[in-house]
Design a protein around this nucleic acid. Structure first.
Lengths: 82, 82, 82, 82
DNA sequence: CTGCCATTTTACCGGC
DNA sequence: GCCGGTAAAATGGCAG
């Protein structure tokens, strides 16, 4: 009996803590979006910026590997590698 | 020349600010994951918890959408909305 | 060597089949757009039409989801589902 | 009176034609997904395949431009261009 | 040309 | 630890 009530409280606590953190997370996502908007307003290409961020996050070895693979595939189907 | 250098500083600043915020965001995601893990350890079903969170987030939006929908149907059959 | 050539043929085949299908898909999207345009020309509100389509697509799914949700809530408070 | 009935039939016709086409479109999307799955099963990297498809769809001039921009940005923030 | 909506891509989580 | 499916974010395209 009491178990159910207590479990309910615990569950609600979990739920509310998660909701609070998700709000924080959303707030940070907003800030990031604002920075992209500002960068765009100053003439930067946000797609290229995202690419830069992705590369910096990746293991350099993996980057090289993917690049090689792309070249390999392009050659394999007879596309100029550029 | 100088243009490039200055733009480089600005760009680097944008990139680093974004990376910093993304780290924060990832940290919060970790905290959320920990709460789920703790809840799971205490016997709660995380799928159920995720559903509850989803509903609590969606419901107000859903209500608005249903209202809008009703109006749209009334339009569709040629009934005045007011 | 030969491996690369053969793999190249296979890869090119995949790529071209996908491109062909994507063209078909785009063609169908065009037809859909034409129907909307025709409907609009005949005085129908395309926004309303899109809402109707959305609802007709979502409703069965939505019903199932609500049922599932009810079960989940019963679990959450420790009630047997059956 | 009759107008409403007729309009209703016309609207339903539009809706059903669109739904039919959307089904076809979804069917084609399934086929594309299957090809990717098959390619993956044969050891191809689908992410790289998608990149190939994107490049082939883009104007070659735009591709070169984006590449140059990426290099420029990398230099500007002091990243090795690779 | 701006906002909106569909599609696509990415990250995440649970199962094997 | 990978892999498949699922939900969130982002990109692109279209109507207005």
């Amino acid at each position: 009996m009491t178990d159910t009530i207590i479990a309910g409280d615990v569950l609600r606590s979990y739920i509310e803590r998660i909701e609070r953190l998700e709000e924080e997370k959303a707030g940070i996502a907003d800030l990031i979006r604002e920075i992209f908007a500002e960068a765009k307003g100053n003439g930067f290409d946000t797609a290229v910026m995202r690419q830069i961020l992705k590369i910096r996050k990746m293991d350099p070895h993996d980057v090289a590997e993917k690049d090689e693979l792309l070249d390999l595939y392009r050659q394999a189907i007879g596309m100029p590698v550029g």
